[in-house]
């Protein structure tokens, strides 16, 4: 194809210009297409972090899988956590394809996680001490994830956009699964209601943090500018957080729960929710693996990885022999 040969002869600047034209026209970039280095690196970081967050995200709920209070709940939470592992796997594949030209594999992703170079979502560093936490994670953490992931459904990188489409469809079931647990508690005994309110109080700050700081000045680490430039996402962190409030504040109140923030209200004039900022210094510490459960969960993942190394060795020995 002549288009291909001529593309190779283009200078880097011209390639870049073509690339920008393509994504601005709404075209999708595929794994084998030319892409700017920082686009590739941003995607690898974003998708590897997303993948690992799905996998690490299985751990707080995993605590409650064997303990779920009925056969139906046991089945529901097992299916939910399995889906999360499935999302992790799907995203790892997308990240692996992007890393292949750099000669890197899944092994590097795992090593980066263990070394602390690859971060996972702040919410999954938090404790989940009661059954209500398991419900709340499904309802509000997955609810928040639906909002951030929907924001990237039209991402310029085709493989990621397609993976997100599948993931979002399942996240809707997760939010329903969580909501069903929450509803049972909200309609239950005094103790059940208290358990639920405690869980909401515990998770509120982490939920606000989930969307990231409003601007890079807050923590000096926001990736939102570059992802917007490259059409990976459309809305800013703050817009997403506002969307979350609009969707969930009325639902939370309708269940008879109290918001753990007395200042929270919708300002008609400004057309936005006014709320108490989470402690962004705490956020920085949490994602540096200094959150309440960071070390314990990393240890769990690392231990199982090394403890089962003999299995992977046996399998690779065999595939080499075939």
């Amino acid at each position: 194809m002549p288009v291909v040969t001529s593309f190779r002869r283009l200078s880097e600047e011209e390639k870049y210009e073509r690339f920008m034209q393509r994504i601005e026209a709404g075209e999708k970039i595929e794994a084998d297409d030319w892409m700017p280095e920082d686009y590739r690196m941003t995607l690898i970081k974003l998708i590897a972090m997303h993948a690992i967050s799905e996998i690490m995200g299985a751990l707080p709920e995993k605590e409650w899988v064997p303990k779920a209070p009925s056969l139906r709940r046991k089945l529901g939470i097992m299916a939910k956590v399995q889906d999360e592992m499935g999302h992790g796997q799907l995203l790892l594949r997308v990240a692996e394809d992007l890393m292949a030209p750099l000669g890197k594999t899944r092994e590097e992703i795992m090593q980066d996680l263990f070394k602390g170079d690859l971060k996972f979502h702040n919410v999954f560093h938090m404790p989940a001490p009661t059954w209500a936490d398991a419900g709340l994670i499904g309802w509000l953490v997955d609810g928040a994830a639906i909002i951030t992931q929907t924001n990237m459904l039209d991402a310029s990188y085709g493989p990621y956009a397609r993976a997100l489409k599948r993931i979002c469809a399942e996240e809707v079931f997760h939010a329903q699964h969580g909501e069903s647990i929450i509803l049972a508690l909200a309609e239950g005994t005094k103790e059940q209601k208290e358990m639920l309110q405690d869980a909401l109080n515990r998770w509120w700050e982490a939920l606000l943090m989930f969307f990231g700081p409003a601007s890079s000045e807050t923590t000096g680490a926001s990736k939102q500018d570059i992802t917007i430039k490259y059409r990976i996402r459309t809305k800013t962190n703050e817009q997403l957080r506002q969307d979350f409030f609009t969707k969930y504040v009325p639902r939370i109140l309708a269940l008879g729960l109290k918001l753990p923030d007395e200042t929270m209200h919708f300002d008609e004039k400004q057309g936005k929710w006014i709320y108490k900022q989470p402690d962004w210094n705490k956020f920085k510490e949490i994602i540096r693996n200094n959150g309440p459960k960071s070390k314990e969960r990393l240890r769990l993942r690392e231990l199982s990885y090394y403890h089962n190394a003999w299995v992977r060795e046996a399998l690779s020995g065999q595939s080499a022999a075939v």
């Binding site: 899988v65 097992m78 592992m85 769990l300 299995v311 992977r312």
Partner: peptide, 27 residues
């Protein structure tokens, strides 16, 4: 279900979990 998240690789975690759900369903 205690194995969840601890299997030798992620693909197995998913397959094993699916079997456990079926088995719980049988019970």
């Amino acid at each position: 279900s205690e194995w969840l998240g601890l299997a030798p690789h992620i693909e197995e975690d998913i397959a094993f979990s699916s079997i456990n759900q079926d088995t719980m369903g049988h019970a």
